[in-house]
Amino acid sequence: MTGVFGDVADLYDDARPDYPSALADLIRDYHGGTPATVTEIGAGTGKGTAVLLRLGTPVTCVEPDPRMTARLTATFPQIHPVTDTFERWQPPTGGVPLLACALAWHWLDPATRNPRAHDALTPGGTLAVFGHEYGYADPEHARAVDTTLRGVDPTATRRRTDWFHQDITDSGLFTDVRAHTLHRDLTLTTDGYLRLLRTFGPYRQRTAAQQTRAATAMRTLVDGFGGSVVLRLRTTLVLARRPHRP
């Protein structure tokens, strides 16, 4: 994922919605108290970091893009940054008590992300993976957006809503896998929606011509909705534990 978001780090931080603060309480309760430390994978500009700092413990943030790390440390100077990929990062001897990942699990190597997370944790340690799914309050709007984006790129696909819950469960490496879901609505103007669109990975990975076509088409569409759209954010938190046994 290195380089996908770095050139829009400021926009990413401004346009992406924050996570509910309640996630911190859910993580703490599952872990059984405040962990000694937290390590976050793919921290970006710190949307997930803000939640993890509410645990009141030292946070190490692993982020491969130095431009994202610069924005992260400007906002949260108290964190310990590590500019590296999860695949190259070496956990401390004995592992970490809590490993977290906010909306970056899909950027990790699917063949190794679960084994690496398992091995990075102390026995009995907690894995916390969370992220938003961006839906629409109006089903007609959802269908119109999907049709419009497929018109720009017919190969575009969507992940299943619970995909990382299933991914972690299917690995067979963790016990006591639980999922929590929170919902909220977010109203965005046309300009606000287009700012958010510009931070999405699928948009950023398309050609410049496709990006221009998508932005033009979506501006016309949201203007046609009356100049705003209501996003229905589904925030999912998946918690899992490394078994105590070897």
Rank of each mutant, 00 (worst) to 15 (best):
Gly6Ser: 05
Val8Met: 09
Asp10Trp: 00
Tyr12Ala: 09
Asp13His: 13
Asp14Arg: 14
Asp14Lys: 12
Asp14Cys: 03
Ala22Cys: 08
Ile27Lys: 06
Arg28Met: 08
His31Gln: 08
Gly33Asp: 03
Thr34Asn: 01
Pro35Gln: 05
Thr39Met: 07
Gly42Lys: 02
Leu55Gly: 07
Gly56Ser: 08
Cys61Asn: 08
Pro66Ser: 08
Arg67Lys: 14
Met68Ile: 05
Thr69Cys: 09
Leu72Pro: 11
Leu72Asn: 03
Phe76Glu: 09
Pro77Tyr: 00
Pro77Arg: 00
Pro77His: 05
Ile79Asn: 11
His80Cys: 06
Pro81Asp: 00
Thr85Ile: 04
Arg88Asn: 15
Leu98Tyr: 06
Leu103Gly: 04
His106Tyr: 08
Leu108Trp: 02
Ala111Leu: 12
Arg113Cys: 01
Ala117Leu: 09
Ala117Ser: 13
Ala120Ile: 11
Leu121Ile: 12
Thr122Leu: 13
Gly125Tyr: 03
Val129Ile: 11
Val129Cys: 14
Gly131His: 01
Gly131Ile: 00
His132Gly: 12
His132Ile: 00
Ala137Met: 01
Pro139Ala: 11
Pro139Phe: 06
Pro139Ile: 03
Glu140Asp: 15
His141Asp: 13
His141Ser: 13
Arg143Asp: 14
Arg143Ser: 13
Val145Cys: 08
Asp146His: 13
Thr148Met: 11
Leu149Glu: 14
Gly151Leu: 07
Asp153Glu: 12
Thr155Pro: 00
Thr157Ile: 10
Arg159Leu: 13
Arg159Pro: 14
Arg160His: 13
Asp162Val: 10
Asp167Asn: 10
Ile168Tyr: 04
Ser171Pro: 01
Ser171Lys: 03
Leu173Lys: 07
Asp176Arg: 09
Val177Ser: 07
Ala179Phe: 00
Asp185Lys: 10
Leu188Ile: 02
Thr189Lys: 07
Asp191Ile: 01
Gly192Arg: 02
Tyr193Gly: 03
Leu196Pro: 11
Leu197Ile: 10
Phe200Gln: 10
Gly201Val: 12
Gln205Ser: 13
Arg206Glu: 10
Thr207Met: 03
Ala208Glu: 15
Gln210Lys: 13
Gln210Tyr: 07
Gln211Asp: 05
Ala215Pro: 01
Ala217Glu: 08
Ala217His: 04
Asp223Arg: 01
Gly224Pro: 09
Gly224Arg: 02
Gly226Val: 15
Gly226Lys: 10
Gly227Glu: 09
Gly227His: 06
Ser228Arg: 15
Val229Thr: 14
Arg241Asn: 02
Pro243Tyr: 04
His244Trp: 04
His244Asn: 12
